[in-house]
Write a protein that binds this DNA or RNA. Structure first.
Lengths: 137, 137
DNA sequence: AACGTTTTTGATAGTCATTCTCATCTGGCT
DNA sequence: AGCCAGATGAGAATGACTATCAAAAACGTT
């Protein structure tokens, strides 16, 4: 993936060391079109470098989150799920029957959130919004 | 508190046994104007019945949540926080510096959420929305 | 009020996701 | 090629929560 090379040099420029394991994890993230858990990323990273350990997956995810390179999602039930944040911001709708995650985006809601925070005397730093629904037949 | 008596009979009507411990936990919840954790509720419940254990707090909270009597909030960092759901629905803004929780309500956002779910082919069951902000000076 | 069934309880062990520890290894500057 | 701060793997530790189980307590029935 091209994403990976870009991310690598971006991170390297910020003084982050690029190790075999980190490349493997970035590659796994880049290849993922869903929202994998740490455990799933471990599996997928090992296709690129079989030496990757779970501890390193967690550590790398923390580094990446700190740099704003990925987004951590904590949906209801189960562990955190991750995705690269190189695509436009979006929120999630989770199918409560299958667990499927659908991405969506609403500028109206984004604007309303800013507005609400402002009215309450706060500067909005980030937000979390998840819809939980059941597929209509 | 009067809330407690009402909740008691409501729950009793649904076949839920009213024990000393459950009364203590309901009382603690009713007295709380903030969003206590299970641990905090244990402390506060013990003012009403010193025999309450942590296991019972968790069990009772599950029962109450199942009956729709309380709402469980999973804000970022730390454990779940609870509140009686006998007041109108609202969402939360969390001060990222102090942890203070501010409640707010936006009918516009509620409506937009319904609409988004519908457009995606889902029936909205519930949602989660938290704003994280910094107090404006 | 006492009985009997069924649920609840306290104490504690277990689970699960995540973080920490530490001896060893390695990326990237020189 | 050599150095060394930072990264790694393996596994122990943590923290929030859930399960287990024998003893205790609700509450409908007498």
């Amino acid at each position: 993936m091209n994403d990976v090379k870009e991310l690598e040099s971006e991170l390297r420029g910020e003084g982050v060391r690029i190790t075999r394991q980190r490349v493997a994890i970035l590659s796994a993230l880049s290849d993922s079109k869903d929202h994998p858990t740490a455990e799933e990323l471990l599996e997928r990273s090992r296709d690129f470098d079989s030496s990757v350990s779970l501890a390193t997956v967690y550590r790398t995810l923390s580094v990446l989150e700190g740099r704003g390179a990925i987004q951590r999602n904590e949906f209801e039930g189960g562990g955190a799920r991750f995705e690269l944040s190189n695509r436009p911001h979006h929120d999630h709708l989770i199918d409560i029957e299958t667990g499927k995650v659908v991405e969506f985006r609403s500028d109206k809601i984004e604007r309303l959130q800013e507005e609400i925070a402002r009215e309450l005397g706060y500067e909005l730093v980030h937000h979390r919004m998840e819809l939980y629904g059941r597929r209509k037949s």
